[in-house]
């Protein structure tokens, strides 16, 4: 096992069991640990007209991407080593209607501020790469498809981010989960154990990514059961992460975007603490995207907040 994994393990070695038993009456009822002012309504805040009926179609014209996020350091960490990024654009023009979105969550590790540095460097590098390679030409006067495929652009972005971490903050590491939405197609580039969920309008969750964690691998190999994985002492050990010396290959998937519903991109401080079912119900019941994000982060904190928590929630346009 590489050193970075051990460090990562040490850093995140507070067990959920511990978190769960700390059901002290001191759990604040107000929101806690909001480290960034990202929960204010965005300018394109969704106008969900029948928000008590989330199954109904999104009441916006033209159909568009909407996104919000929330973040917290949690209740047991001093620093927030998670970083996140949201970019939602929409071009509506002469016969064109082109929604584009770029959403990234990075969960840093390494201590001595290495973690937060690594996750932010990873995000900045990736965003720079994607905007340069994809975004600028996409909205130019005479858009020419890039020479590389979306997959290759994302793959190169991951490698660039990896190299940038090695250059700027040796010893730091991070997960990096990037979602690009271009019209009805999406691509996900993924390293580590942050997750992308597809959430349908009734709140059912489906993970689109595979954790690059030791326990997940053991689980896939049938060595341990999902139940054992939850309390496995090495459940925070990653076998693939950015900023570490070993060669790796990002997992990149392309697929049509789900026909409606949401994408949730989050760090393990959320998915590892709040059961999926509860996350789905929270999304379903919330009136706005920002409220949904905040409620999910709150739920993680109420469960002890053992780790940094990051969540990006994207409402997908309903297919026509």
């Amino acid at each position: 096992m590489a050193d970075y994994l051990k460090k990562y393990l040490k850093k995140r070695d507070k067990t959920r069991a511990k978190a769960n038993i700390s059901d002290s009456p001191t759990i604040p009822t107000e929101r806690v640990g909001i480290s960034q002012d990202v929960t204010k309504p965005l300018s394109l805040q969704p106008t969900i007209t029948r928000s008590d009926q989330p199954e109904s179609r999104l009441g916006v014209e033209p159909p568009q991407l909407l996104a919000s996020c929330a973040q917290s350091a949690g209740r047991q960490r001093e620093h927030n080593e998670d970083s996140l990024f949201l970019l939602t654009t929409m071009l509506v023009g002469n016969g064109t209607r082109f929604p584009f979105g770029l959403y990234i969550v990075a969960d840093g590790m390494g201590g001595h501020q290495h973690g937060e540095v690594a996750s932010e460097i990873a995000i900045r590098t990736m965003v720079g790469h994607v905007t340069e390679q994809l975004f600028s030409s996409l909205f130019s006067v005479d858009p020419q498809p890039p020479d590389l495929s979306l997959r290759e652009i994302l793959q190169n972005g991951v490698y660039e981010a990896h190299n940038a971490i090695l250059d700027h903050t040796p010893g730091g590491g991070t997960t990096l989960t990037t979602v690009v939405i271009m019209n009805n197609q999406m691509a996900i580039a993924h390293v580590g154990d942050s997750r992308v969920y597809s959430v349908n309008l009734s709140g059912a969750m489906r993970s689109l990514t595979r954790d690059h964690s030791l326990v997940k691998r053991l689980e896939e190999l049938g060595q341990i059961t999902p139940e054992e994985a939850v309390f496995h002492p090495q459940r925070n050990v990653l076998y693939r992460a950015l900023g570490q010396g070993e060669p790796f290959e990002p997992e990149i998937i392309t697929a049509p975007t789900p026909e409606s519903g949401y994408l949730l991109i989050c760090s393990d401080g959320l998915w590892g603490v709040v059961p999926e079912k509860e996350l789905g119900m929270t999304i379903k019941k919330s009136k706005t995207l920002s409220e949904a994000c905040q409620n999910m982060v709150d739920a993680a904190n109420q469960a002890g907040g053992p780790d940094n928590i990051s969540a990006i929630l994207v409402r997908l346009p309903d297919h026509e």
Partner: peptide, 9 residues
């Protein structure tokens, strides 16, 4: 991608 002609992979 059918809509844009952009290569996905």
């Amino acid at each position: 991608d059918v809509k844009t002609g952009w290569s996905l992979w």
